[in-house]
Amino acid sequence: MMPTHNINLFPTRRDENWKYSDLRSSLNQISKGIESINEPFFTLPDGLTTEEVGCECASLKNISSVLAENYCHKAWKIDVPESFESDQPLVISNLNCGHSQIIININKGGRLSLVEYHESQSNSFINTNIIINIMDKGELDRIIFHDDTHETVRISSAIINSESDTRITQNAISFGGALSRIETIITANGENLNATINGAYLLSESRHCDMTSNIDLLKPNCYIRQLVKGVVKDKSNGVFQGKFHVHRPAQFTDAEMRHDALMLSDTSKIRSKPELEIYADDVACAHGNTIGQLDEDVLFYLRQRSIPLSEAEAMLTEAFVSDVFYSLKDNHLKENILTKIRGRL
């Protein structure tokens, strides 16, 4: 069957940013969602509302934005008022087929807890483009669940712009899909951003997950910690691309990037591309990247205590992954994540 969509909008592996995730080829198996709009469900904390507005292209360099603008005639906008605070999160779900754009403005001193469920039961294509603008002293806590079938193709891209004295924590968990990508693009336009960007992926069968982030620091005194852990087995593919771009005025940046992966089979693959681009001269920036296997001596120790091999492997894998979420304050969400992880081990 010939595709009806404009295939040229979708990147190939010749696009450096999509070198390890072949989006165009992956669409061959997709039956729906490539040209349609996706209506998300919002569970709003008291005091917030959604408004339908026109769709915008946040960045021509961002494929998710380009696709959203091309296929969506509207976007959903949420304004978080000044000094807003709530113990209820904003929950976004029903992201299961087609394109959508969501715009969130966190006004001065506002604090938002955002939980996103990206879940599909079919061989659909989903593109979720989220634009978040954080004004001075604003705070964002973001949790992302990616739980799809092995046939789903999904891009979820967040473009986050922050002003001064802002705080971002992000925790993502993905079980991959035929192709699944979590993109986080942060631009610190103001001083003193404090960001923790964590993620974990657990992949089996022939699933593919790509965690890509790009953090642009334009002003001084930003503090960034990134930790991504991956586990691949069977014929699955894990991709990590992380970039810190420290511009000349961004003095006193303190940024660390880590990606640690566990390969549980000979046929799985990990591709990792950490990048630091630094123009300021008084900064501390580091990146670390490891790939390894479960320790045979540790496995033997557990087995010597009657624990069957598969259970011992699951126990050690859980221990490896779960420390990504160690700092998560919401115990209910933490337990929710750990339960999902255990279900996949």
């Binding site: 001596d297 540790v298 120790y301 557990l302 010597q304 205590r305 009657s306 624990i307 069957p308 259970e311 126990m315 050690l316 859980e318 221990a319 490896f320 779960s322 420390d323």
Partner: peptide
């Protein structure tokens, strides 16, 4: 049962969780 010459450190696995798993597996 082998009492190891060099008992293994297992980060991320609480002692009680480990022991309960072992006992119940047995």
């Amino acid at each position: 049962f082998l009492s190891f010459q060099y008992p293994i450190e297992i980060p991320g696995v609480p002692t009680m969780t480990f022991l309960k798993t072992a006992l119940n597996a047995q």
